[in-house]
Design a protein around this nucleic acid. Structure first.
Lengths: 170, 170
DNA sequence: GGACGACTGTCAAACACTTGACATAATGCA
DNA sequence: TGCATTATGTCAAGTGTTTGACAGTCGTCC
């Protein structure tokens, strides 16, 4: 199957699954960002808070892997959320060099408000698609994720990367 | 429907469509970025090149709207691609202050190589899902995009936004 | 016990992007 | 013709993130 070679490049480029995927994710993210903004929270903050909420005591490095960002970015976000009193850094009982992350009451409250906004968006989608199609969409998206990670297992290589000015890999 | 209130926050948070959507898009983007890196190209460059390829003579501002970034970001990308000799800025025949963007032969060549990489990833997904499910996935993703843009029409408001340090909208 | 390796966290620098403001040019209307 | 409006493109500054390098800590193998 080499139909994509020799053919005019952009012929089917705008009808690909990955484009539809990107457009949908872009639209959802933009809406989330807009709605969360009125709460004074960015989407990245919400993602971090809910990750810590689901797994209390998480370390920064592990959090960075789950959120697909660098430890630096996590440290920056954590510092800000800690400054707002929504997040707390405690020393790890066993590993002294590690810092456990925990939500404060204020953090739980902010997360609750933010999550209701996210849930509302989720509901709008569910209403439009119906329960059956929503379930199938989730299943298909899971298959896509599996298909990708089957080729590229989520490891140190899948960290966010950029490119230098001259085009050489950073 | 207010089931999401009062309940424990993260109970169903990791089983939402928007999460599955984000995970899938993140995985696909990471793989694209990794594969394109060996060609010395970033995903943003590919997106820009193919947009110009589909609509030659595009202006920077219009391009910015399509790519969901600011004109500044486009100008930066264009300057870099122009420096590599892959993109060309010509004066607009009628509007002197506008600059048309066109691909050079080198740009077309780079785009062809990059597109074959993207098409390969697309094919891996299509193989895994099958033609029928792939079509349905595209349709469902289109419905999601429509459902979102129905609430939040793609306009000046859907531009990329950030948040200040203090949490006030930028 | 001691050395090696792996992991966590932090600092300085470079890079990318957004924001805000400004100059320029074309269109619509009085 | 004159003027307001709109839109493109660019400059300067602020913000966020990645990169690269480093020190500290734990576990393991010799």
């Amino acid at each position: 199957m080499t139909l994509h070679d020799e053919g005019p490049v952009g012929a089917d480029a705008l009808d690909r699954v990955t484009w539809a995927l990107r457009r949908a994710e872009l639209a959802v993210t933009a809406l989330k960002e807009q709605r969360l903004r009125s709460l004074g929270m960015a989407a990245a903050h919400y993602s971090l808070l809910i990750a810590v909420h689901v797994d209390p005591g998480l370390a920064g490095a592990e959090l960075a892997r789950r959120l697909n960002v660098t430890p630096q970015a996590v440290a920056s976000l954590v510092a800000r959320l800690e400054g707002r009193g929504q997040l707390e850094r405690r020393p790890h009982p066993r590993h002294r060099h590690v810092q456990e992350l925990h939500l404060t009451d204020a953090g739980r409250d902010a997360l609750r408000k933010a999550d209701s906004v996210i849930a509302e968006i989720e509901q709008q989608i569910t209403e439009k698609l119906g329960a059956k199609d929503t379930g199938q969409l989730k299943a298909l998206l899971g298959q896509v994720t599996d298909a990708i990670q089957q080729v590229q297992p989520a490891g140190p290589l899948s960290r966010p990367v950029t490119l230098r000015k001259d085009g050489t890999p950073g």
